[in-house]
Design a protein around this nucleic acid. Structure first.
Lengths: 223, 223
DNA sequence: CTTCGACCACGAGAATACGCATGAAACTGT
DNA sequence: ACAGTTTCATGCGTATTCTCGTGGTCGAAG
């Protein structure tokens, strides 16, 4: 899962980004409205954390522009004080949620989790696919009840696949959501990781759809 | 749009319900956790507003039970002020959003709007033609409920035909949509693929219109 | 009603593209 | 410097796609 943090306060930005990375997300940072807007429009993020008060272009304008351009990713707004009118207009402009400063980082993390899982159409913080269980809250996964030991990229791969269960996920889509900005596209890294994941969670769970990508699904189709 | 309000404070409950009705929603009211849980499990709501502190059963438990039972409707939680940990656990239990008391009714309305808007984006994209079902989002197709195993070109062909159901689709049109750029015109690949598709989904569904192309249609023509 | 020509279906093999395993090399943080 | 992790290159096996040839079907015209 790839997240964009747009916040001009350098310290706060780093604090948030670090916490997110710790939870296993890939994070891009922006420090003013224009940079943030540009990134959000060109890169595919699973969620955006957006300060409302920003140099160059304020947060509300940024969201509005994204929504006009058809970008639908979930946006969590950071509002300065208890300016509740800001919150309302932010939400109506297209933001999906807000947190008032000052906030606990834990809370922001919980809200980001909720936004991402809601965007994927899941209602609880645990996603279950056959014997595999993904605990988004703790960033852990298990098979048949026993904990998995996954490397960070393996976890990101599993997480993305499980958030898009039943759907075919292309290689490029995976690359875009597992890595930040620049990454050499032609390589078989994804295949390698899929292979390693399959070895750990069982080979039947990730189906390969030739020419399109991969699909995660509980294996009950004998067909 | 039908909304459930679960709140034990009679005044607050009425206040919210009135505001919602004013906005054009249909509103049901509940005044304790058990009643709320029962209603939410038996009636189909588009959104629920749920107080966290309730008699009989607290809000977090209510959400958890709903989620376990597979109920996925968006839930907006009302939390007592400053109970930061409550918010986090509420969100992780499966609530989609929360508002801290005391709140402005305007704000609750904005959030309900946002929740419903989000939920609407998850209607599944399926095309059905007789016994054939095509799920474009998952890149899957089935006949009489059983999964089809289609290759990527077969799927593309089926997809195009089903998107133009009832219309005659010419060979060149198909070629142009199944292949990027240039393609050797003198070849009968399309015919080959139509043949293979017919073998998999049943021969009656794709009618050949001599001299023009193919037409997909549910087979009920006594002709 | 028959015949003719164009159009289409289908099978089987050849050519290709694709995904996978593997192991070595490069990288990372401790 | 070391152990764990990630990246890259190679070659192989196979599913998929394409080509080709034959025979069948349809429709119009005589």
């Amino acid at each position: 899962m790839r997240i964009l943090v747009v916040e001009d306060d350098v310290n706060l930005n780093r604090q948030l980004s670090d916490a997110l990375k710790e939870s296993g997300y890939v994070v891009d940072q922006a420090f003013d409205g224009e940079e943030g807007h540009y990134l959000g429009e060109t890169e595919p993020y699973d969620a955006v954390i957006l300060d409302i008060g920003l140099p160059q272009m304020d947060g509300i304008t940024v969201v509005e522009k994204w929504r006009e351009a058809g970008k639908g990713m979930p946006v969590l707004m950071l509002t300065a004080r208890d300016r509740w009118s800001d919150k309302v207009s932010g939400i109506d402009a297209g933001a999906d949620d807000y947190v008032a400063k000052p906030f606990h980082v834990e809370e922001v993390l919980a809200r980001v989790r909720a936004l991402i899982r809601r965007a994927a159409g899941h209602s609880s913080s645990e996603i279950i696919c056959g014997p595999v269980r993904l605990d988004t809250k703790a960033s852990k996964a298990s098979v048949d009840g026993i904990q998995l030991k996954l490397t960070s990229h393996e976890f990101r791969l599993l997480s993305y696949l499980m958030h898009h269960m039943g759907q075919v996920v292309s290689r490029t889509e995976l690359v875009e959501h597992m890595y930040d900005q620049d990454f050499d596209r032609d390589s078989n890294t994804i295949e390698v990781f899929v292979g390693r994941l399959r070895k750990k969670i069982g080979v039947d769970l990730i189906e390969t759809v030739r020419g399109l990508g991969y699909r995660m699904q509980a294996p009950n189709d004998a067909h």
